[in-house]
Structures are given as C-alpha cells and as structure tokens.
Design a protein around this nucleic acid. Sequence first.
DNA 1: TTTGACTTCCGAAACGTTTTGGATCACCGT
DNA 2: ACGGTGATCCAAAACGTTTCGGAAGTCAAA
Lengths: 363, 363
Amino acid sequence: MSLRRIARGLNISVTTASRALGGFSDVSAETRKKVRAEAERIGYRPNPAARRLRGGTSDAVGVVLPTGPGQLDDAFFLRLLGAIGPRLAAAGLDLIVGTARAGEEERAFYRQLVENRRVDAVILARTRRQDPRIGYLLDAGMPFVAHGRSEEPRAYAQVDVDGAAAFRLATERLIEGGHRRIGLLGAPRYYSFAHHRAQGFEAALAEAGLASGPVAEAEPTEENGFRLLQAMLAAGEAPTALLCATDRLAVGALRAAALAGLRVGRDLAVIGYDNLPVATYTNPPLTTFDPEVERSALRMVEMLLALLRGESPQGMAELRQARLIVRASDGPAAGRKPQTTSIDRQQGRHSPEETPHEGSAIP
Amino acid sequence: MSLRRIARGLNISVTTASRALGGFSDVSAETRKKVRAEAERIGYRPNPAARRLRGGTSDAVGVVLPTGPGQLDDAFFLRLLGAIGPRLAAAGLDLIVGTARAGEEERAFYRQLVENRRVDAVILARTRRQDPRIGYLLDAGMPFVAHGRSEEPRAYAQVDVDGAAAFRLATERLIEGGHRRIGLLGAPRYYSFAHHRAQGFEAALAEAGLASGPVAEAEPTEENGFRLLQAMLAAGEAPTALLCATDRLAVGALRAAALAGLRVGRDLAVIGYDNLPVATYTNPPLTTFDPEVERSALRMVEMLLALLRGESPQGMAELRQARLIVRASDGPAAGRKPQTTSIDRQQGRHSPEETPHEGSAIP
DNA sequence: TTTGACTTCCGAAACGTTTTGGATCACCGT
DNA sequence: ACGGTGATCCAAAACGTTTCGGAAGTCAAA
C-alpha cells in the first residue's frame, strides 16, 4: 500500500517510484528528487516481507548460541554478538539468534533455519573437530562463516585464533621460567579450540624434551577448573605451573590453589585464555591471552557479506594471533630468581605499577 | 511455488491445500490426509515471507542488547536470551537481536524495528527510571514486555526482581551482624534496578536509625568496583561492610580490599547481587543474591504471547524475589563473635563444608 | 523523411500465502 | 417439486515489492 501511495501522490507509476528509490538510471533526476521527497514526507518504509518474498531472500543471518553447562554464559558469545551486530545492521541484515543445546535440539534448529529459508546465511561459533553442522550447511548450500577450524575437508569461510601458537608461547614462557612440571587444564578435545591449545602445549614440551605434567579436561566452567585442580592435588600430582584452556577454568583453579594453601604466582604459575573482565581482578591477576574477538568478528562479517555477494568461500580462511597479557599469576618456578618484576606482586598496598586493571601486553 | 505444487500433484486447488494444512473444517478428512501426506512427501515448508506479507505480521520479536562499557558482557543478558530463546522458538517466533549503545544509536534501532515492522513485539531489558524507550513503544502501539520498572505512568507488561527487598534484607543482615558503618557501591541511579537496590539499603538503615556509610556509584564493572572502594579507602572512609549493586562491582571491590590488606569476611563484609558463576570462586566466595533470571524470562514470554493474542498489558506486572545465597564474604563485624559458622572460612585445606561451589540458599 | 539511439516512463507479472465470497452437490423435510 | 441445510471445494483478490519487456517521445545523423 505504500509504494502505491507515493505513486498516486505524484501521478506516476509504482514502477517508477520503485526504480527511483532503487537508484536506477532510467529515471530522470527531477522525478527521482520528487519521489525521494514524497517518500520522506509520508515516512515510507519498504515492507521487508514483500521485498523478501519477491527477492527470494530473507535479509537475515542466523547464529545459534550453545546452551547448557558452561556454554551460554560464556562472555565469548556476547562479545561476538556485540561486535557482529552493528556491522550486520549497517548492511541491512537482521540477526536472528537461536539457542539450543548441542545435539538433537541444535540440529533441529539448523534445519529450521535452512529449510524454512529464514536466513540467508549463518554464523557458526565454537566449532568442533567433527562438526556435523558444517557438513550439513555445506550440503544444503547455505552460506556460512565459522569461528573455528574443523576437520571438514571442503573449503568453508572461517576465522580462527591460533590457540596452538598461544599455548606454545605460554608453555615456552613457563619453561623459560624454570618450570619442569607443567600441567594442563583443558577443555574437551572435541572442541576445535581445545584441541589446538593442547597441541601447542604438547609441541612446546616435546621441543624442550620435557615430559608432560598432569593433564585433565572438562567443559570449561569455573567449577570444573576447581574440581580438576583439586583432583590433581589430591592425587599428589601438583604441577608447578598450570595452563588453563579458558579463564573460567583458571578462575576455578585459582580458588582450588588458594584453598590448598598454594600461593599462585610463586608456588604455582597459572596462565589462562580469554582475558575475561574478571581476569584483571582475580587474586592474583591472571596472566592470559586476549583473543580480540572483535577483530575476528570484523573479518567474519566481511566474509559473510562476500559470500552473500556470491563469492566462493574458497580461500576465505584467516588465522589470527592472540595477544599475551602478562599479569601476576605466572611467576617463575620456586627457587628461581624472578626475571623482571618485583617478587611480591599481589600483596601490599596499592601502587601504580600494580594497578590491576592494566597488564603489559605483548602483541 | 509450493502450495501450488501440492495442489497440482493432487489435482486440487491451492485454497484447499492451504485450508487442509491450516486445519479448517471445510475440507474433508480424506482430502486433508492426502494433502498432509503430499506435503510431507515433498518436504513442504510454508514460505515465511509470503505468510508475513499476507498476514501483515512478522512472527518475530526483537531485543536490543546494550553495548558499551560494562554493559554487554553482562552475563545477565545471555541468561535472559538463553531462557527466552527456546520458548519463543516453540511459539514459532524468531528472535531478532540488535546491539546498540544507549542514546542515539539505541533510539534509532528501536525506530527501525517499529517503523519497518520487522517485529511484532519487543523485549526490553534493564529499564531506566526515565526510559524514553518505554514511552516510544507505548506511543507507537508496539507490544512489548520489559524487565524492570520505570516511572512511566501508563501500564505496560513488566517483570522485575525486588531489588529493594533484597538490599533491605542484606542490610538488615549486616546490621544484625553488628555492622554500624555500612557502605554502598551502587550502579548509577538512572538505572531502575540500581535505584531500587539503593532504596532498600537506605530504608533498612533508616529503620535501624543508622547513618549511611560511604556511598558511591558508577557503571557496574569490575574496574569501577575496584576504583570506587579504593577511593573510599584512600579517603579514610573504610566501611566495615559493603553492599555492591552487582557482582561485577563486588569482584572489583574484593580485589581492592585484598590489595589494601583487608581480610574480606573479617575486616570487611561484602555482599553482591547476580550470583555470577564466578561468585562461587572468588576469594572468599561471595555472598550474593540470585535473581533467577530464567523465572523472569518464563513470565516475560508468557506475557508477550498474551499481548500478541491481543490482550491488554493492564495488570501484567510481576515482582519476583531474589534468593540470598550465603557464602563467606559477609562475616559479622570485627570484635563480634561469629554466629553459626566456623571462623576461618576462606583459608585452610579443603573440606566438604567449605566446598566453594555450594552455598546455603535462603529462599 | 527515415532510422537509430537514447531517455524516461509504465503495465503486468511474479513471489507464495491467506481469505473472501461464493459455487456445487447431496440430502432432508415439506 | 422446492426451499433449506451442510459439506466440500475453488477462483480470485490481496499483501507490497521488483523486474521484464516494451512504449513513447526526443534528438541527431543519414
């Protein structure tokens, strides 16, 4: 009823009104101006449903948030949404989010999305090594971009952060600091990110000819971090340094260490991953990696728009580096002289150098 | 092209096919069965765009996540999304989320949503006392349900958690514990939730005839919690107990206290609000309130569906109670005998009673 | 004058659904 | 024989847009 209103008001055809607003060249400058003015005057908004029906497109992209223990309240997804949202909006795309726990529910939701043509493309986060979603979307011909790699052999648009490099660096750093018994609190290795981080850890150990310290894995929650480290300690396997696949695991581990009387940063070094807001304010502040999710998001949206333009996902793959944020939780091994910083970082009165909301960043 | 396919395949009219699937009574049982079978066979999915165009509805609800410092990475919104998502999906509604920082951007997004008729209803979170969004939606006649009260005089569907009652209870508890100098780390009072919590605090003090301890407010981030308490201490205004409007503020405050050499739970009692996952694993574990967001979400969706059925928002208002989760951060005032629990809760070896992933809940 | 090119416009079809307003037929009671 | 009642079906319109395939007019070159 609306393009028609413009047309009637100006005594022109609906076609011309449409093409004027659409920026086609077969309408005179004067007409175009009048149409624009009239559209403005009556507050014309194209009806998205009509546009979609006609165009066979849905102008929306879907993203499914994993629900379930230790999944949803992950700040990662919010950061991703926050970074992706405005860019999609700028491109005129709606963002439809669903929530589903991995498994049947998740599969059903993706099928919904695809079969009902509710979205033009989807965004996939936290890929798994064997990820049925990826195969499904490829088979269905639905454009998508994933955050994370997988073992799918076909090409697909992907952005990932190099967790292996990060954990290799962290491990080397610990070895350098004199640690010889380095443990790992990992996430389940069916998660792509967990696998890569563990591999980085293992590679660095192998290069240094070191045996691995205690290793355990579980869904990345604070509770599991707590339990896992507690179990290690109970088994008499205390490491002198502990790599945690995520900050949430690290937070739990920090607490387990404190309860066991271990001074983190002295008796036990801890390094996390994610740079959660809380990581600056743990006791002691947590050395961790910042994945700079916003940068990943930017690239993902770029890829997505390219896919929507019809480009092939061939070659759309980017591997970004995480930034190491050094705080106070990763001191050198006991009995070793500290390298650069003062011994007692986490106690005493506040002084500028120990302001906990800053960490020295190594790019 | 699809209802038509069914119709052609069965040699019936499109109308009949539509009405058969729509469950109308003017189609014979036999025909209906055949239509259902054929639809199943060819994998028929009604085209949502067509349906929306014809019906003038959009089968979607919108929610705008606030972006900006200390806003987005709030676990609150993820919990809300996670709880709302499946219920909306069950009702066949898409969930369109946008992200915008408060102010112009936010206003623009809401206008988008409304004027482009992209959604049938919207969900509003974290209301402000003077909330232009609420007036706008009311004026525009767009159905919505809000999480949080406001000073809007007209009736609108709302669910809120009784922050005043919670903070009154917390304050009474602290007074009961012998505290006489109780401070408040608040969020800005233009947030409805912050205002109510502060009011509960003030009411309890007034009733007890106590003067307020130091009070400060800022956006609810860890960093601000840290800075604000540090400023109080620097000003020589150390309280013996501190109420924090959110757990994120509390986490920062905990850190500032530790750096100042204060033993939280002994020299300083701290109570937060939100029951973030991390609250169980701070040092010491944080006494806090669990708002049980999922329950709010459930009621909000119920209201929303009612609104979509055309019911009036009149009387759609629910005020829920938060649950106090007692952990170790809120000991009695120094010099006072502890009441029920062992003195040293946060140190020493792990024993079952101090397992930090459990707290005693008072409903 | 004719031809062709160019500019500007438009009618009509199409996207896939739901709904309106009957049409057709069988059957029943009068 | 006839009006009435149900049951079952359907053609066509409508939702608002985009696009296809010209049409009409103007102008310049031939």
